[in-house]
Simulated assay, not measured.
Amino acid sequence: MRFLIIIPAHNEETNLSFTLDSLLQQSQKDFKVVVVNDGSTDKTSEVIRRYTASDARFETITLQKSEHQPGSKVVHAFKSGLQTQAIDNFDIICKFDADIILPENYLQAVENAFINNPEYGLVGGLLYVEKEGNWVYEGNSNKHHVRGPMKAYRKECFLQMGGLRETLGWDNIDAILLKNKGWKEIVLPQLHVKLMKIKGADYTIKPADYYGRYFYFLGLNRLMAYIASSKEAMKSKSLSFFFDIISSYEHCKSRKLELKITKEEQKVINDQRWKMLKKKWLKI
């Protein structure tokens, strides 16, 4: 199977070489990498040039500087890189971040999983971060969800679900939509991916505003959004946090901000959220 790997990169001169070196060291060699230089103002372009000049599997495109928005910006960069390639020439479509280190068997293990399990649509490993000199499980998500920095999609699955959406919450929307199409999302826990930068470190958006916007762009109806907000407020043990999230959600709703999912997809997302709620909290 042949891999197409798209890597959005914004001011990643410190980390990018580690990511690209880890790709060079892969036991599976049949891949094409497109690094999307997304408005970098540091020496990211020089780092990219070292690889494109010496290995034909590496290509790059440069985008103009754009406003940093959680979710939409990175998917826009990904799509820009994707448009430079003929998808029919590939079997697996990957969206990787520019600040991860992959184990040498990462691509091979992903390929084996797809070959041996035709129902697998999305495969990835687990994220680890460095703490006090040790690499430990990041723990920001459950171990059955493939995180945004290391997504690998079977091409047929990717196309059936309509690709990635330029919106906050894209890396949860994809999992819901592919499942609705009959595909499975699988985490291979033996694949430890090192994350060199904490996600969200570049975001200036306040947590409550983030959650409110996230629930809105995820397409949650008012009931599901309020339930989700209450769960986040309970974690923070703050009633005011609940009202701040709701205020952000209602602000988006009153402005009728554009959603990147259809009415049918919104229904799928809300139905699945309700099923999860009944299973986990109501034991139905």
Score class of each variant (00 low, 15 high):
2 R>M: 08
6 I>F: 04
12 E>F: 04
13 E>S: 14
16 L>M: 05
19 T>I: 09
22 S>N: 08
26 Q>M: 03
26 Q>D: 09
27 S>Y: 10
27 S>M: 06
32 K>V: 05
35 V>R: 01
36 V>R: 08
43 K>Q: 14
43 K>S: 13
43 K>D: 14
50 R>I: 15
53 A>E: 15
56 A>P: 15
57 R>S: 06
59 E>A: 15
62 T>H: 11
63 L>W: 07
65 K>G: 14
67 E>S: 06
68 H>Q: 11
76 H>E: 10
76 H>Q: 09
79 K>T: 10
84 T>W: 07
92 I>C: 12
95 K>I: 03
96 F>K: 00
100 I>N: 03
106 Y>Q: 03
116 N>V: 12
119 E>V: 11
122 L>M: 12
126 L>M: 09
128 Y>E: 09
131 K>C: 08
138 E>S: 10
141 S>G: 13
156 E>V: 04
159 L>G: 02
164 L>G: 08
168 L>M: 12
169 G>Y: 05
171 D>H: 06
172 N>H: 11
183 W>V: 02
183 W>A: 00
185 E>H: 09
186 I>N: 00
188 L>Q: 11
194 K>P: 06
199 K>E: 10
202 D>F: 01
202 D>H: 11
203 Y>M: 11
208 A>H: 11
210 Y>A: 10
214 Y>N: 04
214 Y>Q: 06
217 F>H: 05
219 G>E: 03
221 N>Y: 01
223 L>G: 09
228 A>E: 09
231 K>Y: 15
248 S>E: 05
257 L>T: 07
257 L>M: 10
267 K>H: 04
273 R>P: 06
275 K>T: 09
276 M>R: 06
277 L>G: 05
278 K>M: 14
280 K>T: 06
281 W>T: 13
283 K>W: 05
